[in-house]
């Protein structure tokens, strides 16, 4: 644990101003990931700006008929909010699939989006890691990589993004609202997280000093035909090996619109618009689902321990699309696959 100075911000402007003044300052809210990483000396901010008292904690209707989640709304509040459960059950389900009740009581919307990878090497400062220390190498690619990525990897990093919430938000095409020294920006979630490329140390497209203020959920919540299917190494309280958020709009037995996002397989929630287009106007058949899965995974690359994820992801996509099409979403309580 490194030493830091502490500031309890009383306004968004103050928080931004303080952050801008110190390149090593970090915002902190739920703390469930930042404190975790600070205890491992992976994160070493010298100044922490506590944003928990800022007015960013409501769930509000938007003019377009969607909902706006304040950045500080906890995962628990979101998952059990009746509006979310009615209109965005995919999001509620995904959040319930993640972490534990205690962590969901602390973790916030903004923090969840910003959580960092669970890569063993990233978490262990005694080992090399390009994400933690650029240029030191990626031992995961030649080491233990059961939990690592199969899509969008680079020679520099094969880490995954660990969030469940963000996967559902990707399928829902949420918009991340940020404020910073340069003003406000609305970032489509697809553009929020990035692939590792040559700079795995950069997780997302936010700039220093910017603060997430809210996440906007567009009006269409796909509340009839959806599922969040998470596969992991035990039945609860574990990160995803592979997860699939599937959202369909069915019209007369055919798929009018499809959204599909994968977790646990890439450096960001993985979307493939071309694959989604393959479903549009099609009947919901397993053959079609398989073709879509094959398309999504055509460039997938497995490593020593995680090659199984390619097959697992293929199967999970087919199952998830079937669940969504038939309106039988995966329960996060009953561990039978629906």
């Amino acid at each position: 644990m490194n030493r830091f100075s502490y500031l309890r911000a009383t306004s968004i402007d103050e928080a931004m101003r303080e952050a801008a003044a110190d390149p090593t300052a970090r915002f902190i809210a739920g703390g469930t990931n930042l404190i975790d990483l600070m205890k491992y000396n992976v994160e070493r901010p010298t100044r922490l700006i506590d944003i928990t008292r800022l007015p960013l904690n409501g769930i509000e209707e938007t003019e377009s008929g969607g909902l706006r989640l304040g950045a500080l709304v906890t995962n628990d509040e979101t998952a059990f909010d009746s509006r979310i459960q009615d209109r965005y059950p995919l999001l509620a389900s995904a959040i319930q699939a993640g972490a534990s009740p205690q962590l969901r009581n602390a973790a916030t919307t903004g923090g969840n989006l910003l959580q960092r990878t669970r890569c063993y090497y990233f978490y262990d400062p005694e080992t090399p890691c390009n994400k933690r220390e650029p240029g030191t190498g990626c031992p995961a690619a030649f080491g233990r990589n059961r939990i690592h990525a199969i899509l969008g990897t680079s020679d520099h990093c094969i880490a995954t993004h660990p969030s469940d919430m963000a996967v559902a938000m990707a399928a829902l095409q949420a918009i991340v609202h940020v404020r910073g020294p340069g003003g406000e920006r609305a970032i489509p979630i697809a553009d929020f997280h990035r692939l590792p490329g040559e700079h795995p140390e950069i997780d997302n497209t936010m700039l220093h000093g910017e603060i997430i203020t809210s996440v906007e959920l567009p009006p269409d919540g796909f509340s009839r035909n959806y599922t969040y299917l998470k596969l992991r190494d035990r039945l609860s309280y574990a990160f995803a090996l592979v997860s699939v958020a599937a959202a369909l709009r069915m019209e007369n037995g055919t798929i009018a619109q499809a959204r599909l996002a994968l977790g646990g397989v890439a450096h960001k929630p993985w979307r493939d618009p071309a694959a989604e287009a393959m479903l549009q106007g099609q009947p919901a058949t397993e053959d079609r689902f398989r073709a879509v899965a094959d398309h999504i995974l055509k460039d997938a690359r497995g490593y020593q321990d995680n090659a199984f994820k390619i097959d697992l992801a293929r199967r999970a996509i087919v199952t998830a699309l079937s669940q969504a099409a038939s309106g039988t979403p995966q329960s996060q309580i009953d561990k039978r696959i629906q």
Binding site: R118, Y120, E126, P139, G143, A238
Partner: peptide, 23 residues
């Protein structure tokens, strides 16, 4: 899980070394 290149157990925590949970 041992990384033989490093000679080190890599999943050295309770998030990645899985013991049964209530579920």
């Amino acid at each position: 899980m041992l990384d033989h290149n490093l000679g080190r157990f890599m999943n050295h925590n309770l998030a990645e070394y899985h013991v049964p949970v209530n579920a």
